[in-house]
């Protein structure tokens, strides 16, 4: 079928699928939905480097691939360095006239573990060296590919296989690492959060991040029915609730200027987000209250940033 676009109000979305069907993501996975949308935003002129993780495994079981764009996976912890090499290689080959000048987007794809834990050093180095690339972190808040082990992106109170809730534990006892803040601290030109429940916002940010010169970072909330323990048809609602409760606000930071791209004057109580998920089912009211308090504080701080440094 020839490429077409489908109109959603003012938003145009290509019918081209850069990620083929037949992948092995879990039923109802929102991560692959986010990836599918991101690929639509990126288009054809792209090279993707992928860290080990759900996306890598579910899209590339030899001898088949879901990818219809050039794609490379080397290891878990080094995707930012691999894409640095892709970018540096393309740049010098074009400069030397060995390959035609062309705008090819260099995009790194990783999960939360590959980003905020084991891949942090390589990512910090790539940001600092100012490579022209877009880094997409698909955050499903634990090591889902290896069986739901906690990561530094796992939220407070979530039960995982290595920080399980039990008689003497609420599960995760640390607060989620704020990767966007860390990205912003590198003074990169663009950092943002996104969620597939807001597909046009997500696609706009991916497009913007790819087009901006220099490093860009988009942190994508990726609800996981398997690890978060909710019914397979609930991904879109869960994502919406994360945004509407302020648990995962949608914003962008462009050259240090903040903008909430979805702004809710009144946040819903976090309980509405926590309740449908098995990983939070053990939480008592006082713990939920503690989470509420933290979400309020973080959201107020974000609003203050938006007010102090508006886009």
């Amino acid at each position: 079928m020839a490429e077409k676009v489908i109109k959603f109000g003012k938003n145009l979305v290509t019918t081209e699928e850069f990620l083929a069907e037949g992948h092995s993501f879990c039923t109802g996975c929102a991560e692959v939905l986010a990836l599918r949308l991101a690929c639509k935003a990126l288009g054809r002129d792209v090279i993707i480097a992928n860290a080990t993780g759900c996306i890598e495994v579910c899209t590339s079981p030899l001898p088949v691939t879901s990818w219809r764009v050039p794609w490379i996976h080397t290891l878990f912890e080094n995707v930012a360095a691999t894409i640095s090499g892709v970018e540096a290689g393309l740049g010098i080959l074009m400069k030397k006239g060995r390959i035609p000048e062309r705008d090819i987007k260099c995009v790194a794809v990783a999960g939360d573990g590959g980003t905020s834990d084991i891949g942090m050093q390589a990512l910090s180095g790539a940001f600092e060296r100012n490579h022209d690339f877009l880094y997409l972190c698909f955050d499903n808040e634990a090591y889902m590919n290896t069986g739901i082990q906690r990561s530094s992106a796992t939220p407070y109170g979530a039960s995982t296989t290595t920080a399980p809730a039990g008689k003497f534990s609420i599960g995760q006892i640390t607060w989620k690492k704020d990767m966007v803040k860390i990205a912003v601290a590198h003074n990169i030109p663009y950092a943002a959060t996104a969620c597939p429940s807001y597909p046009f916002d997500l696609m706009n940010k991916v497009r913007k991040g790819a087009e901006i010169e220099g490093p860009a970072y988009v942190h994508i909330f990726s609800p996981c029915p398997t690890g978060w323990r909710y019914a397979s048809d609930l991904a879109i609602e869960i994502g919406r609730l994360a945004v509407e409760t302020g648990v995962f606000p949608l914003y962008e930071v462009e050259t240090g200027r903040y903008k909430l791209t979805v702004d809710r004057p009144n946040l819903k109580p976090v309980e509405e987000y926590l309740k449908p998920q098995g990983r939070f089912r053990h939480l008592l009211d006082e713990e939920i209250a503690k989470i509420q308090e933290r979400v309020n504080e973080d959201y107020a701080r974000l609003k203050a940033n938006v007010a102090a440094l508006p886009a």
Binding site: I47, A49, I72, T74, L75, E77, N78, A80, A81, T82, I83, S84, G85, V86, E87, A88, G89, L90, G91, I92, L93, R98, I99, Q121, A122, S124, G125, E128, R129
Partner: peptide, 24 residues
């Protein structure tokens, strides 16, 4: 040439992999 002053040997080799894969 592009000289990439990486933050570790791990990244040095990883950059080489990415660069070689585009034909550099």
């Amino acid at each position: 040439a592009a000289y990439v002053p990486v933050e570790s040997e791990h990244s040095a080799m990883s950059v080489c992999l990415g660069a070689a894969a585009v034909g550099a």
